[in-house]
């Protein structure tokens, strides 16, 4: 595995508070370019917060955050406008980032939703919405992809799609951070796993 010298993301002594509670305390983390990093931890240990920090959406109260983008964050809840069709949703993302509408259709075809492109998001199943959310990655082509428990509720083919997406980012020289409770999945998908506890990360041993 070839690791470049300049990291995709570097967090140094990061402290983050959310809603009066300290979540991250002096966290250090380097995500190398071309790396797929697994992130595990108990409920409430701050995994989602850490992803938001990596996405530079939550500023730290102390410490430095350096990230090379573009960044895509796929959270528990798909970021779709429920009254828009899947195509309109992806076209919106394409236009926001100055891309052609055709990119949206191609992305939907890639995730296997070409036939459902004109269906409103609120008339789609959870798995379909999840796939449509994944299609964003093919539109914005991020070099840092952050996945927050995206495997939840996915069938085997959809789960394979996640693997494909992650692999695509890695092959482009980007990096992924994958949060999951499924240790087998994390072990299979990632190069390295860290565990978040007491507001910091430590290397984790997974089966």
């Amino acid at each position: 595995m070839h690791l470049q010298l300049s990291p995709q993301a570097e967090l140094t002594d990061v402290h983050v508070d959310v809603q009066r509670t300290s979540v991250l305390r002096g966290l250090d983390l380097v995500v190398a370019a071309g790396e797929v990093l697994g992130l595990i931890g108990a409920n409430g240990s701050g995994k989602s917060t850490l992803l938001n920090v990596l996405a530079t959406l939550i500023p730290p109260v102390a410490g430095t955050v350096q990230v090379r983008g573009p960044v895509a964050l796929l959270g528990h809840a798909p970021a779709l406008y429920s009254q828009l069709t899947l195509r309109e949703n992806l076209q919106f993302v394409a236009r926001m980032t100055g891309r052609d509408d055709a990119v949206a259709d191609a992305a939907l075809a890639t995730v296997g939703l070409a036939a459902a492109a004109d269906r409103r998001a609120d008339r789609c199943s959870h798995g379909m919405r999840r796939r449509a959310d994944l299609a964003r990655v093919f539109v914005t082509k991020p070099s840092l992809l952050l996945l927050d428990e995206v495997h939840t509720g996915l069938d085997v083919t959809s789960a394979a799609l996640v693997d494909h997406v992650v692999d695509g980012v890695r092959r482009r020289g980007g990096a992924c951070v994958v949060v999951s409770h499924d240790r087998d999945q994390v072990a299979r998908l990632t190069d390295r796993v860290v565990e978040l506890a007491a507001g910091r990360v430590a290397p984790a041993v997974v089966a």
């Binding site: 938001n52 996405a55 809840a77 798909p78 993302v93």
Partner: peptide, 18 residues
């Protein structure tokens, strides 16, 4: 109600450089 962005939607827009 349709003039409310949910946190994931705001995050998406921010990451799209809006």
């Amino acid at each position: 109600t349709s003039a409310v962005d949910t946190p994931p939607q705001i995050a998406l827009l921010r990451l799209c450089g809006v």
